[in-house]
Structures are given as C-alpha cells and as structure tokens.
C-alpha cells in the first residue's frame, strides 16, 4: 500500500466567478466522491483562495539550509500572498491510501476539478 496526495489545481478567477448554485453542485460532486471512496480516503481539504495566503521565508532570501533546525527562525520574512504565483493555484487536496499508482490514477480521474486538473504525488514513507 502507498499513500498519495491528490492535489487540485484550478483557476481561481473562475472559482471567484461561479454563482451559489454552481458552487453547490461542485461541492455535491466532492461529497459524492468522498462517499464513494471513503474506504481509501485518509484526509482532504478545501483551501481558501491564495489571496488569504501568507508566506514565510528565511531572512537569507528563503535559503534556510544553514539555519538552526533548517527553519526560517524569528527573523523570517513574512509576506502577503502565495509562495509561488500561478494562474492555476493549489485549491484543495485528498490524501488516499491505495495499492499502487494505477489505483491512485483511477481515483484522480474521478476527482471533481471543473476549472483545472489534479496532480498525483506519492508520499515518501519514512
């Protein structure tokens, strides 16, 4: 068994423009997906848009390799906005546990993502 993160990348402008009725329909699709695959779903979430994001970088322009605990630390540079600006932004995710990539891809094909697509990433097992 392996764990995979299914990342939903969608156009935020399109999401901002949809009416309440359509939003409901999309959410219903997600609920159906969750119900259909409850046995392999280990988690998931819907993110607020990137306008609400705050990024934290080390004082040395994000390079923390030599910092204590490899972390940005108290002198961190805190800025408004996502770490990387892209048209299609990470807007949600599912964590699944399945036997192999084929099973993960079969799930990914069913994930509702009206304004973009999804990326499947295997988790490192440490």
């Amino acid at each position: 068994m392996g764990r995979y993160l299914i990342l939903l990348y969608e156009d935020e402008a399109s999401w901002a423009a949809v009416g309440q009725e359509e939003t409901e329909a999309i959410l219903t699709a997600h609920r159906r997906f969750g119900e259909a695959h409850g046995d392999v779903l280990r988690g998931g979430g819907w993110l607020h848009p990137t306008a609400t994001a705050t990024s934290v970088r080390g004082p040395d322009d994000g390079a923390n390799a030599d910092a204590p605990g490899f972390a940005a630390g108290v002198d961190a540079l805190v800025t408004d906005g996502p770490y990387v600006e892209t048209k299609e932004a990470l807007g949600g995710f599912y964590l699944v546990e399945v036997p192999d990539l084929d099973s993960a891809l079969a799930l990914a094909r069913e994930v509702p993502a009206p304004f973009g697509g999804v990326e499947v990433r295997p988790l490192r097992e440490t």
Binding site: P99, D100, L101, D102, P122
Partner: peptide
Amino acid sequence: AAAGVPFRVPGPDE
C-alpha cells in the same frame, strides 16, 4: 519505484 507504477498487465477495464 517511487510512484508505485505496478508490475502488472492491466485489468479488462483499463
């Protein structure tokens, strides 16, 4: 190896 591409002939669906 890392992504878990299986060593398998796909089933009839796929």
